[in-house]
Amino acid sequence: MEIASQCLLVLQKELRHLWRARARATATATFALACLFLFSFAGGLDGDTLRDNAAGYLWVGLLLASTLALGESFRVETEHGALEALLLFPVHPVALFLGKALGNMLTLLAVGLAMVPFAVALFDAAPREGVPTLAACVLSGSAAIAAPGTMHSALASRARARDVLLPLLLFPLVLPCVVAATQATRLAITGDPMNQLGSWLSVTVAFAIVHWSLGALLFPLVVED
């Protein structure tokens, strides 16, 4: 139906725009890697603590990098009035939200997966539960951050002091999913004897479902003028 097709078109635009501006995406990924280095020095360099904290470093690094990607995703829309032009075509606001959120999710996933090999090397954090499980953690975490991230970057991009406002609004909100994703990732790395990983993953999935649906419900109110 129309929303689905419009959503795919918006996603296609997001991906084409990201590809054309890929220099920026690689800069965001490099920033995330710099965070990994920073945290390892901050947390102490001995092997065990590094491996145990690897998941936390990965997720906090990805969260910090996500503010760059999310802030950019709506700067592009508001800078030359593109958002208003889209709404006048008309594009259904829900399709706009889903398309942009999917774009942001894929960006976060790409940055997250790019960080994994470095984290494995730096922290000797080869995932005992296997790479697919680790990738699943990164995917569900990215999906969970993308929805509220898209909502709040839409809010912050049209307010003053947008660069401080986005993290200030986003971090308390994504705290539960970062906690759950970190636990799941930690279990994926250090082994999951009592297989709790699945339940932590289900927390991030539940979080994603709630925020994707709330986002679709409330996004039209955010973009109306």
Binding site: A21, H80, A82, A85, L88
Partner: peptide, 16 residues
């Protein structure tokens, strides 16, 4: 909106 077109000051294009 499908029947209305607006040329506004902001051109609404994507730079990239």
């Amino acid at each position: 909106r499908r029947r209305i077109a607006l040329l506004s000051h902001a051109d609404g294009h994507y730079d990239e």
